[in-house]
Amino acid sequence: LHQPTLMVYGEKDLIPPLLNITDFVPNIDIKSLEAGHWIQEERPEELNQLILEWLGK
């Protein structure tokens, strides 16, 4: 996958992010928030801000 990609994961999520994801998605920006698995419900404002900043690049 070569399109610009944003991955946001929760620091408290029990499912860890893939360590070798850049092997498959070389143009990825990885961010994290102080949340569990349901980031969009736990931190909606922060997630929206991250997405808007990333889209503005």
Score class of each variant (00 low, 15 high):
Pro44Met: 08
Leu50Lys: 10
Thr5Ala: 10
Ile28His: 00
Ser32Phe: 07
Leu47Gln: 02
Ile30Cys: 05
Glu42Arg: 13
Gly10Cys: 03
Glu45Arg: 08
Leu52Ile: 05
Ile51Gly: 02
Leu14Asn: 03
Val25Lys: 09
Leu14His: 04
Gln3Leu: 15
Asn20Tyr: 11
Gly10Glu: 00
Glu46Cys: 00
Glu11Ile: 04
Met7Glu: 09
Gly36Cys: 10
Ile51Phe: 05
Glu45Gln: 15
Met7Cys: 11
Thr5Asn: 04
Pro44Tyr: 08
Pro16Arg: 01
Leu33Cys: 02
Ile15Cys: 05
Met7Pro: 07
Leu33Thr: 03
Val25Ala: 05
Pro26Arg: 02
Glu34Pro: 00
Asn48Ala: 13
Val8Gly: 03
Leu6Ile: 06
Pro26Ile: 10
Asn20Ser: 13
Glu34Met: 05
Ile30Thr: 09
His37Leu: 06
Leu33Trp: 04
Leu50Asn: 06
Asn27Arg: 09
Pro4Trp: 08
Pro44Phe: 07
Gly56Gln: 15
Gly36Val: 11
Thr22Arg: 14
Leu55Phe: 12
Thr22Glu: 15
Gln40Asp: 13
Arg43Lys: 15
Asn27Gln: 14
Thr22Val: 05
His2Ala: 12
Asp23His: 13
Asp13Ser: 15
Val25Thr: 13
Met7Arg: 04
Ile30Arg: 05
Gly10Val: 02
Arg43Tyr: 11
Lys57Gln: 15
Arg43Thr: 15
Leu50Phe: 13
Leu33Met: 03
Pro17Trp: 03
Phe24His: 14
Glu45Lys: 12
Gly56Tyr: 10
Asp23Asn: 15
Val25Glu: 02
Ile39Phe: 02
Glu46Gln: 14
Asn48Gln: 11
Asp13Glu: 12
Pro17His: 00
Pro4Cys: 05
Glu42Trp: 13
Leu6Pro: 05
Arg43Ala: 11
Asn27Thr: 11
Val25Pro: 04
Glu11Thr: 04
Asp23Phe: 07
Trp38Ala: 00
Leu1Gln: 01
Thr22Gly: 02
Asp29Ala: 14
Thr22Pro: 01
Ala35Cys: 10
Leu55Cys: 06
Val25Asp: 00
Phe24Arg: 14
Pro44Gly: 06
Ile21Val: 14
Trp38Met: 00
Glu46Pro: 02
Gly56Arg: 12
Gly56Pro: 00
Ile28Met: 13
Glu53Pro: 00
Ile28Pro: 10
Ile21Asp: 10
Gln49Asp: 06
Thr5Ser: 09
Gly10His: 03
Ala35Tyr: 07
Gln49Met: 08
Ala35Phe: 07
Thr22Ser: 11
Leu6Thr: 04
Pro4Gln: 11
Gln3Asn: 14
Arg43Gly: 06
Gly56Asp: 15
Asn48Trp: 00
Thr5Trp: 04
Gln40Ala: 15
Ser32Gln: 12
Ala35Trp: 07
Ala35Val: 11
Leu52Gln: 10
Glu45Asn: 13
Arg43Ser: 07
Asn20Trp: 11
Leu18His: 06
Glu42Cys: 12
Asn48Ser: 13
Leu1Pro: 02
Pro26Glu: 07
Thr5Phe: 09
Glu53Arg: 01
Trp38Cys: 00
Asn20Ala: 10
Glu34Ala: 07
Met7Thr: 07
Leu18Thr: 01
Gly10Ser: 03
Ile30Gln: 09
Asp29Gly: 10
Trp54Ser: 01
Glu42Gln: 15
His2Met: 13
Ile28Ala: 14
Gly36Pro: 08
Glu46Ser: 08
